[in-house]
Write a protein that binds this DNA or RNA. Sequence first.
DNA 1: TGCATTTCGTGATATAGATCAAGTCCCAAT
DNA 2: ATTGGGACTTGATCTATATCACGAAATGCA
Lengths: 232, 232
Amino acid sequence: MPALSHQDVRELHLFSEMSDEHFQMLMRGAYVQNFPPQLELIEEGAASDFLHVLLSGSVDLFSSWNGRETIMATLRPVNSFILAATIKDAPYLMSARTLEKSRVALIPSEDVRKVFELDNAFARAMVTELAECYRAVIKTQKEQKLRTSLERLANYLLRHQKREGVSHEFDLPFEKRRLASYLGMTPENLSRAFKGLQAYGVTIDGQHITISDQADLERFAKPDRLLDDPFY
Amino acid sequence: MPALSHQDVRELHLFSEMSDEHFQMLMRGAYVQNFPPQLELIEEGAASDFLHVLLSGSVDLFSSWNGRETIMATLRPVNSFILAATIKDAPYLMSARTLEKSRVALIPSEDVRKVFELDNAFARAMVTELAECYRAVIKTQKEQKLRTSLERLANYLLRHQKREGVSHEFDLPFEKRRLASYLGMTPENLSRAFKGLQAYGVTIDGQHITISDQADLERFAKPDRLLDDPFY
DNA sequence: TGCATTTCGTGATATAGATCAAGTCCCAAT
DNA sequence: ATTGGGACTTGATCTATATCACGAAATGCA
């Protein structure tokens, strides 16, 4: 594993507090790989052999049952994923695939569990990480159950706007079919939803979004810190 | 906090591995309270003052937004709840209310965070607990997104049957209106779903369920260890 | 430059489930 | 015994969203 990637991993909260010695133990068996787009990294049901850390690119977590499939989350760098399966030594509950060309660090699960027993700072960082993951899923589930697709889109736009710095114009970060899946709706309905938001001053041209009446959109979207604030 | 309740809490995996000294530190500020049915113990958005441990009775975790409300989970004793909010010192993401007369142990969040820093075994137990909670939510979300209401009911019946020992007859553990909410559907639709399952050999008389054709029901329900096995 | 593929938009229709409105049954209090 | 309320059922709509079908636009590639 090249030293540069080490540094990226080390800077993650999950790994930043542990001792150098234990970090080296983790890195010894770890390696970094470049994956092409649309490659399945993980299949749900398989044993968790590696803790994954996404260094660049992006990754979807998805699940299937009885021929149906749904996207559970979309990950951006730098972030670890499937920590819970790794630490419990349990099968993955979700599959993962790259969306674009991506660099991923693979750390053997066995090493993670061993170092977890040795390093108290690592164990504590894991508590924080898992608590954050837990809360993120709860927020997603709340949003899915409590908001209509139009409301989810409106709030997504407001969140994205905030993330990018508060300008009234910005571009969508990925294609609409993926945005649709991420928001739990079909591409067709996403089209209609964008049309529906025109009534609240949202115009769209290709990937480019313009929010002409911020107050009106917010009045409709009713953003809520317990659902939309990433730090809560 | 009476010694008997101490014992119940101590036996939870979360508290069983820590030192006696640190357990006493937690129990010193803790107390047990009896609550009547339908009492709101926690309101979402509030600061997390106490880690809760349900000793007897049952509790619903639910959320609201914009006048809508949804049940996120139903808890049975003995279990802790809102651990993630407590350890992150963040506001509750869900509200909690008793369903029946319930005994709950309240442990000051500040003490939990303090002991978490001192006791390594406690920190590690927390990792396990949070990983389990995380996986439980993921399973719920998968089930909600991938299964229809009829499929959810069918699988619920199979899970409940297994939990109670594999008899072909059993009683529902709570009233149908609550079961409906738990399964993410309306009471009306639950009625219709029960009728729909008659085609697969399920008969219902009041609270009493009879599964006359186990194989047929399983063929329809397609239970999956990644969704339905509580230990995965 | 031109062709093929994919993405996007839009209308028509289908479907799962919610909501609304009665009506039945059961139980508990008077 | 009578009454009243709650839980449950059932049927009739209503609504959000999915699915299907097709044409237009954009994109990539030879």
